[in-house]
Design a protein around this nucleic acid. Sequence first.
RNA 1: GGCGCCUUAGCCAAGCGGUAAGGCACGAGUCUGCAAAACUCUGAUGAUCGGUCCGACUCCGAUAGGCGCCUCCA
Length: 464
Amino acid sequence: MDLYFYNTLTKQKDKFEPIDLEEVKIYSCGPTVYKDATIGNMRTNIFQDILRRVLRYNGYKIKHVMNITDVGHLVSDGDEGEDKMLKSAREEHKTPLQIAEYYTELFFNDLKLLNIETPEIVCKATDHINEMLEYVKKLVENGYAYETSTAIYFDISKLDKYPILSNLDLEKQKAGARVDIDREKRNPADFALWIKAPENHLMKWDSPWGASYPGWHIECSAMGQKYLGEQFDIHTGGIDLIPTHHENEIAQSKGRCGKIPANYWLHGEYLLINGGKMSKSLGNVYLVKDIIEKGYDPIVYKLFSYSCHYRNKLNFTWEGIEATSKSLERLRNSYKINLNGNDKLTQQDKDKLLQIEENFHKAINDDLNMPLAMSYVWEVARFEKKNEEVAKLLAKFDTVLGIKIDEDNSKKEEIPEEILELVEQRKIARENKDWQKSDELRDLINQKGYSVKDTKNGAEIKRI
RNA sequence: GGCGCCUUAGCCAAGCGGUAAGGCACGAGUCUGCAAAACUCUGAUGAUCGGUCCGACUCCGAUAGGCGCCUCCA
């Protein structure tokens, strides 16, 4: 079945045709590890995870590279106030590198909690200083870069066309742009490839230009080329990366080898909080940890993100999470019921399931349309006949969804001995049809923070 | 100032030029000692206005409201 992606480069849905039919090569811009990853960051990672899973559903093998930015963004570039990185390093009595390691670990823990697959290759910027340096040297050699007293800059006027992803008109931008005080730059939009380190700079390396450190965009170009070659299939990232980071990555690649590094550029939209932007000043920055603390399975957030297409803004609300929590429970419930179902499937039923399966496939192949795909998942979950085949189809869908549909809803957490004892007493009361005592015991259990629900397989106990 | 996006039932949110998927909530019901679960049923004419068309939510234009980017940001 054909697969289509909306391509920021062409501004339309393009049919996907990989360079190498055997293996799709993807590069994703990963986290800058100097602070906690938010659920907004995670939305992008979920989108990238879906991309991987959909490609695999279509039979492709994948080579996916994701970078860890542990240098370059670490030190503020002339902003006022203390740098966050240095601040946390000082507060926690750690080096910048230790901070990077700490947040890298947290990041991967979040991925795990959300059942997001780890890319085949994860690479740190600091491990590729040489590659970056070589890349910059080559750009200088090719005449696309020049040195100033503070840095090596990329000269965008050497390109046939500079902003090619976004519709920005640099000429028109000039009027409203902030004043650029760097008179050494040839063009206002020239960006730093390699920066000469000030005396007190914590991370710096030797280079032909003295102690210095890489600019903000060179790492992705250098590592992308190293692991995936001059040209690969898909490049992903958040929508905010379009105007600068990805634009500059393309510029660098064109300057070095005359090619746009990737054929398909996919960008994920922002997550909004209560209709607005997530920001610390509004106190609405949420982490995966916060979702867990409110008592939800973190997978709920993943499922929640499927209610909206990745190229549209998704509005996060706790009401939405609560609603999705119910949905997840029902989907898992349906899986379990179907697994033990004994209804016979007629040929007509089987045809119907096949049709739904095809619709699902069509939806995910149409630029990862998860909201539409979910409607087909529900058709299966609510299929009138309960049968193992239905459960198998749900499991197949779950290779794309990754919501652990086979996981038991009843939490595996420890139920206190006291509660178990009360539940046992209630069971006896119910067997004796002593409903009054049974209800009293249920109230008591509720008071102690647990709920009891009678199912065919006995009492289900959950923490409230 | 420039560029772009969004506005669909109480909430979230898709597809589609020919009369609107799905989820949650609400309500009704089946089942069960009750509750829960499960299952069944139930709701919108598409921000406003105008145009094109045999026909528009779906194309074009305008208006209103909301949002994003142009500066680090997923």
